[in-house]
Protein backbone atom coordinates (compact mmCIF):
# COMPACT_ATOMS: atom_id res chain seq x y z
CA UNK A 1 0.00 0.00 0.00
CA UNK A 2 2.84 2.30 0.91
CA UNK A 3 4.52 1.36 -2.32
CA UNK A 4 1.37 2.10 -4.33
CA UNK A 5 1.05 5.50 -2.76
CA UNK A 6 4.68 6.13 -3.55
CA UNK A 7 4.01 5.36 -7.21
CA UNK A 8 1.12 7.77 -7.30
CA UNK A 9 3.32 10.33 -5.65
CA UNK A 10 6.01 9.99 -8.29
CA UNK A 11 3.55 10.25 -11.13
CA UNK A 12 3.09 13.87 -10.20
CA UNK A 13 6.75 14.62 -9.50
CA UNK A 14 8.09 15.71 -12.97
CA UNK A 15 5.80 18.71 -13.08
CA UNK A 16 8.36 20.60 -11.01
CA UNK A 17 10.77 21.69 -13.74
CA UNK A 18 9.42 20.58 -17.05
CA UNK A 19 6.05 19.62 -18.40
CA UNK A 20 3.98 16.87 -16.93
CA UNK A 21 4.93 13.22 -17.26
CA UNK A 22 4.46 11.97 -20.76
CA UNK A 23 5.40 15.32 -22.40
CA UNK A 24 8.02 15.50 -25.13
CA UNK A 25 11.47 14.22 -24.17
CA UNK A 26 13.91 16.82 -22.97
CA UNK A 27 17.27 16.91 -24.78
CA UNK A 28 19.96 17.76 -22.25
CA UNK A 29 23.02 18.90 -24.22
CA UNK A 30 25.22 18.55 -21.13
CA UNK A 31 24.29 15.01 -20.41
CA UNK A 32 27.40 12.96 -19.83
CA UNK A 33 25.99 9.50 -20.35
CA UNK A 34 24.84 8.00 -23.62
CA UNK A 35 21.37 6.82 -22.86
CA UNK A 36 19.21 5.89 -25.81
CA UNK A 37 15.93 6.07 -23.89
CA UNK A 38 14.17 9.41 -23.69
CA UNK A 39 15.05 11.31 -20.57
CA UNK A 40 13.10 13.79 -18.51
CA UNK A 41 14.10 16.61 -16.29
CA UNK A 42 13.77 15.45 -12.73
CA UNK A 43 15.03 17.41 -9.75
CA UNK A 44 14.79 15.81 -6.38
CA UNK A 45 16.98 15.47 -3.32
CA UNK A 46 18.48 12.05 -3.09
CA UNK A 47 20.91 9.89 -1.13
CA UNK A 48 23.69 7.90 -2.72
CA UNK A 49 25.12 4.84 -0.97
CA UNK A 50 27.97 2.99 -2.70
CA UNK A 51 27.82 -0.81 -2.47
CA UNK A 52 30.90 -2.72 -1.38
CA UNK A 53 31.92 -5.94 -3.13
CA UNK A 54 30.37 -7.97 -0.28
CA UNK A 55 27.03 -6.19 -0.96
CA UNK A 56 27.13 -4.21 2.27
CA UNK A 57 26.73 -0.42 2.29
CA UNK A 58 29.79 1.77 2.10
CA UNK A 59 28.62 4.21 4.74
CA UNK A 60 31.82 6.24 4.58
CA UNK A 61 31.07 7.39 1.06
CA UNK A 62 27.39 8.00 1.62
CA UNK A 63 26.41 11.38 0.26
CA UNK A 64 23.46 13.61 -0.55
CA UNK A 65 22.82 14.63 -4.15
CA UNK A 66 20.31 16.32 -6.43
CA UNK A 67 18.89 14.44 -9.37
CA UNK A 68 18.95 16.16 -12.74
CA UNK A 69 17.12 13.90 -15.13
CA UNK A 70 15.58 10.46 -15.37
CA UNK A 71 14.80 7.95 -18.06
CA UNK A 72 13.41 4.40 -18.13
CA UNK A 73 16.89 2.95 -17.98
CA UNK A 74 18.89 5.41 -15.89
CA UNK A 75 19.21 8.81 -14.36
CA UNK A 76 21.66 11.60 -13.77
CA UNK A 77 22.49 13.48 -10.63
CA UNK A 78 24.99 15.95 -9.21
CA UNK A 79 26.80 15.56 -5.97
CA UNK A 80 29.02 18.11 -4.15
CA UNK A 81 31.27 16.28 -1.80
CA UNK A 82 32.79 13.51 -3.78
CA UNK A 83 35.59 13.52 -6.30
CA UNK A 84 34.72 10.08 -7.58
CA UNK A 85 33.00 6.94 -6.43
CA UNK A 86 35.09 3.99 -5.27
CA UNK A 87 32.99 1.38 -7.07
CA UNK A 88 30.52 1.13 -9.94
CA UNK A 89 27.44 -0.15 -8.07
CA UNK A 90 25.48 2.00 -5.68
CA UNK A 91 22.08 2.39 -4.12
CA UNK A 92 20.27 5.61 -4.74
CA UNK A 93 17.40 6.84 -2.63
CA UNK A 94 15.18 9.48 -4.19
CA UNK A 95 13.03 11.50 -1.85
CA UNK A 96 9.35 11.33 -2.57
CA UNK A 97 6.69 13.89 -1.80
CA UNK A 98 5.92 12.02 1.40
CA UNK A 99 9.48 12.62 2.61
CA UNK A 100 10.45 8.95 2.33
CA UNK A 101 13.36 7.72 0.29
CA UNK A 102 12.66 5.34 -2.58
CA UNK A 103 15.57 3.12 -3.48
CA UNK A 104 16.98 1.55 -6.61
CA UNK A 105 20.23 -0.23 -7.42
CA UNK A 106 22.20 1.54 -10.10
CA UNK A 107 25.49 1.19 -11.89
CA UNK A 108 27.71 4.18 -12.64
CA UNK A 109 28.11 4.63 -16.35
CA UNK A 110 30.14 7.83 -16.30
CA UNK A 111 31.11 10.61 -13.98
CA UNK A 112 32.76 13.96 -14.52
CA UNK A 113 33.48 17.13 -12.63
CA UNK A 114 31.56 20.13 -13.79
CA UNK A 115 31.60 23.53 -12.11
CA UNK A 116 33.02 22.05 -8.89
CA UNK A 117 30.46 19.33 -8.67
CA UNK A 118 30.53 15.71 -9.63
CA UNK A 119 28.02 14.88 -12.33
CA UNK A 120 27.13 11.20 -12.47
CA UNK A 121 25.23 9.21 -14.99
CA UNK A 122 23.83 5.89 -13.73
CA UNK A 123 21.90 3.01 -15.19
CA UNK A 124 19.25 0.95 -13.34
CA UNK A 125 20.68 -2.55 -13.06
CA UNK A 126 18.77 -5.51 -14.48
CA UNK A 127 16.79 -7.69 -12.07
CA UNK A 128 19.37 -10.44 -11.68
CA UNK A 129 21.96 -7.92 -10.57
CA UNK A 130 19.63 -5.93 -8.34
CA UNK A 131 20.62 -5.78 -4.69
CA UNK A 132 17.01 -5.15 -3.70
CA UNK A 133 15.49 -8.03 -5.60
CA UNK A 134 12.95 -10.20 -3.71
CA UNK A 135 15.20 -13.27 -3.48
CA UNK A 136 17.81 -11.24 -1.63
CA UNK A 137 15.39 -9.88 0.93
CA UNK A 138 13.09 -12.82 1.65
CA UNK A 139 13.94 -16.43 2.59
CA UNK A 140 13.39 -18.52 -0.51
CA UNK A 141 13.74 -22.22 -1.13
CA UNK A 142 17.19 -23.35 -2.22
CA UNK A 143 16.53 -26.09 -4.78
CA UNK A 144 19.66 -28.08 -3.98
CA UNK A 145 19.34 -28.26 -0.20
CA UNK A 146 15.54 -27.79 0.21
CA UNK A 147 16.39 -25.22 2.86
CA UNK A 148 15.31 -21.61 3.04
CA UNK A 149 17.73 -18.72 2.92
CA UNK A 150 17.91 -15.10 1.82
CA UNK A 151 20.11 -14.24 -1.17
CA UNK A 152 22.27 -11.97 0.98
CA UNK A 153 23.87 -12.97 4.27
CA UNK A 154 22.00 -12.00 7.41
CA UNK A 155 24.83 -9.76 8.62
CA UNK A 156 24.81 -7.78 5.36
CA UNK A 157 21.08 -7.26 5.47
CA UNK A 158 21.36 -6.06 9.07
CA UNK A 159 23.83 -3.39 7.97
CA UNK A 160 21.33 -2.14 5.42
CA UNK A 161 18.72 -2.13 8.20
CA UNK A 162 21.03 -0.07 10.42
CA UNK A 163 21.27 2.72 7.86
CA UNK A 164 17.50 2.72 7.36
CA UNK A 165 17.27 1.30 3.85
CA UNK A 166 15.63 -2.00 4.83
CA UNK A 167 12.97 -2.66 7.40
CA UNK A 168 12.67 -6.18 8.87
CA UNK A 169 9.30 -7.88 9.33
CA UNK A 170 8.12 -11.33 10.40
CA UNK A 171 7.17 -12.90 7.11
CA UNK A 172 6.19 -16.44 8.13
CA UNK A 173 6.48 -19.16 10.75
CA UNK A 174 6.71 -22.36 8.70
CA UNK A 175 7.03 -25.85 10.19
CA UNK A 176 10.27 -27.39 8.99
CA UNK A 177 12.22 -30.59 9.53
CA UNK A 178 13.39 -30.73 13.15
CA UNK A 179 16.63 -32.36 12.13
CA UNK A 180 17.95 -30.35 9.18
CA UNK A 181 15.45 -27.45 8.96
CA UNK A 182 14.69 -28.31 5.35
CA UNK A 183 11.35 -28.35 3.59
CA UNK A 184 9.08 -31.27 4.45
CA UNK A 185 5.87 -32.53 2.92
CA UNK A 186 2.91 -33.28 5.18
CA UNK A 187 0.33 -36.01 4.95
CA UNK A 188 -2.27 -37.75 7.08
CA UNK A 189 -0.56 -40.96 8.07
CA UNK A 190 -0.47 -43.92 10.42
CA UNK A 191 -0.41 -42.91 14.06
CA UNK A 192 2.08 -45.63 14.86
CA UNK A 193 4.63 -45.57 12.07
CA UNK A 194 3.68 -42.49 10.03
CA UNK A 195 3.16 -44.40 6.82
CA UNK A 196 0.85 -42.95 4.21
CA UNK A 197 -0.13 -46.41 2.96
CA UNK A 198 -3.52 -46.65 4.63
CA UNK A 199 -6.64 -48.53 3.67
CA UNK A 200 -10.01 -47.18 4.72
CA UNK A 201 -12.06 -50.25 5.46
CA UNK A 202 -15.81 -50.50 5.22
CA UNK A 203 -18.06 -52.08 7.82
CA UNK A 204 -21.42 -53.74 7.45
CA UNK A 205 -24.25 -53.39 9.96
CA UNK A 206 -26.60 -56.35 9.71
CA UNK A 207 -30.00 -55.11 10.91
CA UNK A 208 -31.59 -58.32 12.27
CA UNK A 209 -28.76 -59.26 14.64
CA UNK A 210 -27.13 -55.81 15.02
CA UNK A 211 -23.76 -57.28 14.12
CA UNK A 212 -21.17 -54.85 12.80
CA UNK A 213 -18.16 -56.31 11.04
CA UNK A 214 -15.77 -55.86 8.15
CA UNK A 215 -17.08 -56.50 4.65
CA UNK A 216 -14.63 -59.38 4.23
CA UNK A 217 -16.28 -61.21 7.11
CA UNK A 218 -19.59 -61.16 5.23
CA UNK A 219 -18.28 -61.89 1.76
CA UNK A 220 -16.04 -64.93 2.15
CA UNK A 221 -17.58 -67.29 -0.39
CA UNK A 222 -18.83 -64.78 -2.92
CA UNK A 223 -22.20 -64.78 -1.19
CA UNK A 224 -23.22 -62.31 1.51
CA UNK A 225 -23.56 -64.29 4.75
CA UNK A 226 -23.75 -62.79 8.22
CA UNK A 227 -20.94 -64.31 10.31
CA UNK A 228 -23.01 -63.98 13.49
CA UNK A 229 -26.45 -65.29 12.60
CA UNK A 230 -25.54 -67.18 9.38
CA UNK A 231 -28.35 -65.61 7.35
CA UNK A 232 -27.60 -65.84 3.63
CA UNK A 233 -28.27 -63.72 0.54
CA UNK A 234 -28.28 -60.40 2.32
CA UNK A 235 -29.58 -57.43 0.39
CA UNK A 236 -28.09 -54.02 0.94
CA UNK A 237 -30.62 -51.52 2.27
CA UNK A 238 -33.11 -54.17 3.34
CA UNK A 239 -30.81 -56.37 5.43
CA UNK A 240 -27.68 -54.36 5.95
CA UNK A 241 -26.04 -50.99 5.55
CA UNK A 242 -22.48 -49.88 5.05
CA UNK A 243 -20.65 -47.91 7.74
CA UNK A 244 -17.30 -46.21 7.62
CA UNK A 245 -14.64 -48.33 9.23
CA UNK A 246 -11.24 -47.63 10.70
CA UNK A 247 -8.07 -46.97 8.73
CA UNK A 248 -5.58 -49.81 8.55
CA UNK A 249 -1.88 -49.30 7.96
CA UNK A 250 -0.43 -51.49 5.23
CA UNK A 251 3.04 -51.22 6.76
CA UNK A 252 2.59 -51.92 10.46
CA UNK A 253 -0.99 -53.21 10.69
CA UNK A 254 -2.17 -50.41 12.98
CA UNK A 255 -5.91 -49.79 12.93
CA UNK A 256 -7.82 -46.73 14.08
CA UNK A 257 -9.72 -43.63 13.09
CA UNK A 258 -7.41 -40.90 14.30
CA UNK A 259 -4.71 -40.22 11.75
CA UNK A 260 -1.57 -38.30 12.55
CA UNK A 261 -0.28 -35.40 10.51
CA UNK A 262 3.14 -36.69 9.53
CA UNK A 263 5.97 -34.63 8.07
CA UNK A 264 8.50 -36.12 5.64
CA UNK A 265 11.71 -34.19 5.07
CA UNK A 266 12.67 -33.89 1.41
CA UNK A 267 16.33 -33.36 2.27
CA UNK A 268 17.14 -35.91 4.99
CA UNK A 269 14.06 -38.17 4.55
CA UNK A 270 13.26 -37.94 8.25
CA UNK A 271 9.66 -38.75 9.29
CA UNK A 272 8.24 -36.79 12.19
CA UNK A 273 4.93 -35.79 13.72
CA UNK A 274 3.49 -32.31 13.48
CA UNK A 275 4.27 -31.70 17.15
CA UNK A 276 7.94 -32.50 16.56
CA UNK A 277 8.25 -30.11 13.61
CA UNK A 278 10.58 -27.15 14.04
CA UNK A 279 8.87 -23.82 13.83
CA UNK A 280 11.12 -21.40 12.00
CA UNK A 281 10.81 -17.63 11.93
CA UNK A 282 11.20 -16.16 8.48
CA UNK A 283 12.34 -12.55 8.63
CA UNK A 284 11.80 -10.67 5.43
CA UNK A 285 13.04 -7.15 4.59
CA UNK A 286 10.91 -4.41 3.22
CA UNK A 287 12.25 -1.60 1.04
CA UNK A 288 10.62 1.38 -0.66
CA UNK A 289 11.39 0.76 -4.31
CA UNK A 290 11.94 3.43 -6.85
CA UNK A 291 9.97 2.83 -10.02
CA UNK A 292 11.28 5.06 -12.85
CA UNK A 293 8.44 4.12 -15.19
CA UNK A 294 5.91 5.37 -12.65
CA UNK A 295 7.80 8.66 -12.45
CA UNK A 296 8.00 9.08 -16.17
CA UNK A 297 4.40 8.14 -16.68
CA UNK A 298 2.90 6.83 -19.94
CA UNK A 299 4.86 7.92 -23.02
Amino acid sequence: MLYDSALNLFCDAPSVDVGPCGSAPYENPKAAERRVAARYLFTKPMAVIPILPDHSPDSAFRGDAISSDISASGMGFEIDALRSFPGRRMLIGVEGDDGLLYYATVEVRNQCECEGRLRVGVRFVPHNNDLLRWENLFPTLQPCSYQFATGLPESTLRRWVEIGVLEPFLADRPLLCPRCHALPTYHQGCKQCGSARLDNQRLIHHFPCAYVGYTEEFDRTGEMICPKCRVRNLVVGADYEYLQGPHRCADCGWSGTDLETVGYCLACHWRFTLRQAWQAEFIGYHVNRLDPLAIIGPT
Binding site: L203, H205, F207, A210, V212, Y214, P246, S255, G256, T257
Partner: peptide, 21 residues
Protein backbone atom coordinates in the same frame (compact mmCIF):
# COMPACT_ATOMS: atom_id res chain seq x y z
CA UNK B 1 -12.45 -41.61 18.95
CA UNK B 2 -15.74 -40.20 17.75
CA UNK B 3 -17.97 -42.23 15.47
CA UNK B 4 -21.03 -40.68 13.98
CA UNK B 5 -23.85 -42.32 12.09
CA UNK B 6 -26.03 -40.41 9.72
CA UNK B 7 -29.06 -42.57 10.44
CA UNK B 8 -30.13 -44.04 13.75
CA UNK B 9 -29.45 -47.77 13.99
CA UNK B 10 -30.36 -48.54 17.58
CA UNK B 11 -28.30 -48.83 20.74
CA UNK B 12 -27.13 -52.39 20.05
CA UNK B 13 -25.65 -51.59 16.67
CA UNK B 14 -24.17 -48.37 18.04
CA UNK B 15 -22.31 -50.38 20.67
CA UNK B 16 -21.32 -53.00 18.10
CA UNK B 17 -20.07 -50.23 15.81
CA UNK B 18 -17.46 -49.37 18.42
CA UNK B 19 -16.02 -52.89 18.53
CA UNK B 20 -13.95 -52.76 15.30
CA UNK B 21 -12.31 -49.64 16.72
Amino acid sequence: IVLSRAERGGKSSALNYALPF
